[in-house]
Simulated scan of single mutants.
Amino acid sequence: MTDGLREAADVRPCRSLLSVPAGSPALFEKAARSKADAVILDLEDSVAPDSKAEARASVIAGLRDVDWGDRIVCLRINACDTPFMYRDLIDTIEQGGDRLDAIMIPKVNSPAEVAVADMLASQVEAAVGRQRPLGLEVLIETAAGLAAVDAIAAASPRIQALHLGLGDFAASLGARTTVIGGQSSDYGVLSEATDDNRARAFHPGDIWHYALARLLVAARALGLRAIDGPYADFRDVEGITSLARRSAAMGFDGKWAIHPSQIDPINRCFTPTEAETSRARAILEAMEAARRDGRAAVTLDGRMIDIASIKQAVALIGKVDRISSKEK
């Protein structure tokens, strides 16, 4: 494994991550011209076993030939328990040039799997003289992975982000769902029973809230990005918007898109609004005035703000500035 302290995660915006099948190189140019902050070239679920080698060659060519702009480019390799993983890493690092930013490891169940990828990447990078170490992105997709997420997140200083993949995760739990990343109409509670025999209201819940919150806490504890996974019904604009707003409100950095039509709704949801930005700037201005007057806290629009308010405002303005810089 690599030595030393964890480096800061890539600071580029990562609101929308467009997943592109590695076996469809005709889509690479379209992805590179899209408004997605990141592109995931997928060698795993979207590629049949007999087509893995051909898709890997397409990725290598695409990394060398396509102008990916300033977006993050990530390669989703095959899982560590498959016969494809080692060749995915070796061939891509040896032949793909320096444009690749990160390797995504799917279905991670233990820190040992991260250590294997880290060690192998380190050796190949040293052999080819790669100057910029690859980051690692960890995809949590099983009950075992979520149970060990703290240890997994700390397994390598290369790790930059934790992702939650709800399709395989639902299967791992035995959840009764029909759409990857969607909700269940059965998940909720009834209002309390009353004596007047009125119909009891049903209050739906978020079936994935615990898993999302658990992964988010593990990521933030180590300064990592937290990424929500895909929503498979790409025709449902209202659905992807609702799910992205939920994740953004929780504190996630971004969400997967499996179709270009999902990029704009995701980007909007993960971009602070003008009202939020104005409020954050007003907080910073008010606190600066309080500092000059020797006060530790101040009221703004009838609400108390203090050092915690500053931290929130600074984080939001930093996000706005990074997004604005990318979109210039």
Score class of each variant (00 low, 15 high):
Thr2His: 14
Gly4Ala: 04
Gly4Tyr: 12
Asp10Leu: 00
Pro13Arg: 03
Ser16Cys: 05
Leu17Phe: 02
Ser19Ile: 13
Val20Trp: 01
Ser24Gln: 12
Glu29Asp: 10
Ala31Gln: 01
Arg33Leu: 05
Lys35Glu: 00
Val39Pro: 05
Val39Met: 02
Leu43Val: 14
Glu44Ile: 10
Asp45Arg: 04
Ser46Gln: 14
Pro49Lys: 11
Pro49Ala: 09
Asp50Leu: 08
Asp50Gln: 09
Lys52Val: 10
Ala53Phe: 13
Ala53His: 15
Arg56Val: 03
Ala57Ser: 07
Ser58Asp: 03
Ile60Asn: 10
Ile60Pro: 05
Arg64Val: 02
Val66Gln: 13
Asp67Met: 00
Asp70Lys: 01
Arg71Cys: 07
Val73Gln: 11
Cys74Gly: 00
Asn78Trp: 15
Pro83Arg: 00
Met85Val: 09
Leu89Glu: 02
Thr92Cys: 04
Glu94Trp: 11
Glu94Asn: 06
Gln95Pro: 15
Gln95Met: 13
Gly96Trp: 00
Ile103Thr: 10
Met104Arg: 00
Ile105Cys: 04
Pro106Ile: 01
Lys107Ile: 00
Lys107Met: 11
Asn109Cys: 05
Ser110Ala: 11
Glu113Ala: 01
Ala117Ser: 06
Met119Gln: 07
Ala121Gln: 14
Ser122Asn: 04
Ser122Val: 07
Gln123Asn: 14
Val124Trp: 11
Val124Asp: 14
Ala127Asp: 00
Gln131Ile: 06
Arg132Asn: 09
Pro133His: 01
Leu136Met: 13
Glu137His: 13
Val138Ile: 12
Ala143Gln: 09
Ala144Tyr: 04
Ala144Gln: 11
Leu146Tyr: 02
Leu146Thr: 07
Asp150Val: 00
Ala151Pro: 06
Ala153Tyr: 11
Ala153Pro: 04
Ser156Thr: 00
Gln160Met: 07
Leu162Arg: 03
Gly165Glu: 09
Gly165Asp: 01
Leu166Gln: 14
Gly167Pro: 06
Asp168Val: 06
Phe169Thr: 09
Ala171Val: 04
Ser172Arg: 02
Ala175Lys: 08
Arg176Gly: 05
Thr177Asn: 00
Val179Pro: 09
Gly182Asn: 13
Gln183Gly: 14
Leu190Phe: 09
Thr194Ala: 14
Asn197Asp: 15
Arg198Thr: 15
Arg200Trp: 05
Trp208Ala: 07
Tyr210Trp: 06
Tyr210Met: 06
Ala211Gly: 01
Ala213Arg: 13
Ala213Tyr: 14
Ala218Glu: 08
Ala218Gln: 04
Leu222Thr: 06
Leu222Cys: 07
Gly223Met: 09
Arg225Lys: 08
Gly229Phe: 05
Pro230Arg: 15
Arg235His: 10
Ile240His: 10
Thr241Arg: 07
Ala244Gln: 08
Gly251Pro: 03
Asp253His: 12
Gly254Asn: 07
His259Asn: 09
His259Pro: 09
Ser261Thr: 03
Asn267Gly: 01
Asn267Glu: 00
Arg268Asp: 04
Arg268Phe: 01
Arg268Val: 10
Phe270Leu: 05
Thr273Arg: 01
Glu274Cys: 06
Ser278Met: 08
Ala280Pro: 13
Ile283Asp: 02
Glu288His: 15
Gly294Phe: 11
Arg295Glu: 15
Ala296Phe: 12
Ala296Tyr: 15
Thr299Gln: 12
Leu300Phe: 09
Asp301Val: 03
Asp301Tyr: 06
Ile307Gln: 13
Gly318Met: 02
Asp321Ile: 06
Glu327Asn: 01
Glu327Ser: 03
